[in-house]
Simulated scan of single mutants.
Amino acid sequence: MKIAVPREKEIGEMRVALVPDIVSRLTKKGFQVLVETGAGEAAHFHDQNYIDAGAEIITDTKQLWQEADILVKVAPPGEFDGEAEINSLRPGSILISFLDPLRNPENILKIAQRQITAFSMELIPRTSRAQSMDALSSQANIAGHKATLLAAAHLPRMFPMMTTAAGTIPPAKVLVLGAGVAGLQAIATARRLGAVVEAFDIRPTVKEEVQSVGAKFIDIPLQEETNAGGGYAKEVSNNTQEVIRQVLTEHIKKADVVITTAQVQGKKAPLLVTEDMIAQMKRGSVIVDLAAEQGGNCAHTEAGKDVQYHGVTIIGPVNLPASLPIDSSQMYSKNLQTLVQYLVKDGEIELNFDDDIIDSACVTHAGEIRNSRIKDLLPSQESSVISY
C-alpha cells in the first residue's frame, strides 16, 4: 500500500501532511511512503529526514500522484500553472485532505467524476471515538493560541499586571467570543500571559469549560436552541443575534482585546461586532477575527489584512496554523496516521459505511458524491450526473 505525500503549492501553506516521525511509524506497519522532494522544507523537515524514516523521495510530481494508493494532503487540490492537481490522481485511489466541501462543492464534484474516493478532514465527527483523527480541533488549538499572541504583539500595552516602583500597571482585559476549541485555547493563552479574560458562547453548555480555563462566562439567556450537536453551534435568528449584540456591547467597550471565533459550518460567519460597537472601543484596542475567511465576525474585517478603524486594529488572519508549521504538521500528521490505520486492515482498504467515522468523512466514492449537504449546494443536473 503506497501512501504519497506531495509538496503543498497553496500560497502561504507551510504545513506538510506527514512528518518523518509518523512516516517511520507507517513504514514499520508495512506501508510504502512516497514523499515529493521538498515537501517538508517549509515545515523544517528535510528530505534526508524522510529518507532516514524509510520514505522514498520522488522528484516527479505527476509520478508521485499517479503511484499513490492513498494521497494525503493539507490544502485541497488546486490548479497551478494551468493544470488541476486532481487530474494527476489515478481513478480508484484515495484522497485524504482538508477539502472545504461546503464552500467548494464544485471541487468535490470533480473529484467524484475522477472516480476517486475522498475523505474530507473537516467532516470527521467530533466524537470521543474519532478524537485522535479530529484535525479541525488539532488545528483550531494552534489557531486560538496564535490569535492571542497576535493580539498581544499588536496591543500597545502589556497583558499582565505589574507592580513596579513607578506604580502598578493593571492587566489587559480580553474578551473571547466563541468557546469552541480555538476559543478555549485563546482563553488559556491569554490567562497564561496574565490577562483578565471574559468569554461568551451561544451554547450555555460550555460555561463550565470556559470557567475551567480561567475565564468569566457571560450569561445571555436566549429563547431558541443554539446547539447543533457534534460540538457545533447552530445558526441563530437575526433577533437572537441582536439580543446578543446588545449585551456584548458593554463588554466590548471595556475590552482591550477581542478575539472572535464564531463559525457555522457551511455558512457565512455571524456578525458579532458591529461598526458601532468598534467605534465605542478604546483607542489602541485590538480585534483578532478568526472567522475572517468565512466573512468575519466583525465589521471591517478583511481576510489577510490589518485594518484600522476609529483607532482600533482589526486583524483578519488567514490560515494561522500554517504560521506554526512544525507543531501543526506534527498534530495533523498524527490525525492522518490514525485515520489511515483505521481504514486499512491487513493491507486492504475497508470501507464500512455503517461506521459513523467513515460515513461522515467519506464525501465521494464510486463516482458519486455521498454527502447530501454537498449535493444540495450543486445545480440538480450536476449533482445527479456523474462522469465515468
Rank of each mutant, 00 (worst) to 15 (best):
K268C: 00
S137Q: 11
G92Q: 13
G30M: 11
R203Y: 07
I86C: 08
A153S: 05
V243L: 06
S212Y: 02
K9V: 01
D327G: 04
H310N: 15
N335M: 04
Q115A: 08
H365G: 07
S372I: 15
R192F: 05
D219L: 00
H44Y: 13
T117F: 05
G316L: 02
G82H: 09
V213R: 13
F31A: 14
E250A: 13
R15K: 06
K216Y: 09
I369S: 12
S285N: 06
A75I: 05
E275H: 05
T226D: 14
A152D: 10
V72W: 05
P76W: 02
S132L: 03
D327R: 12
L71D: 10
A269K: 12
K73C: 04
T313Y: 00
M277Q: 12
R370T: 15
S333I: 13
R370P: 09
M331C: 10
R373C: 00
N335F: 09
L175H: 07
Q131A: 04
V344T: 14
A43Q: 09
V74D: 10
L343A: 12
P160R: 00
V35M: 06
M331W: 03
V312T: 15
L184G: 02
L272S: 02
R245C: 01
L336H: 11
D219V: 03
L123P: 06
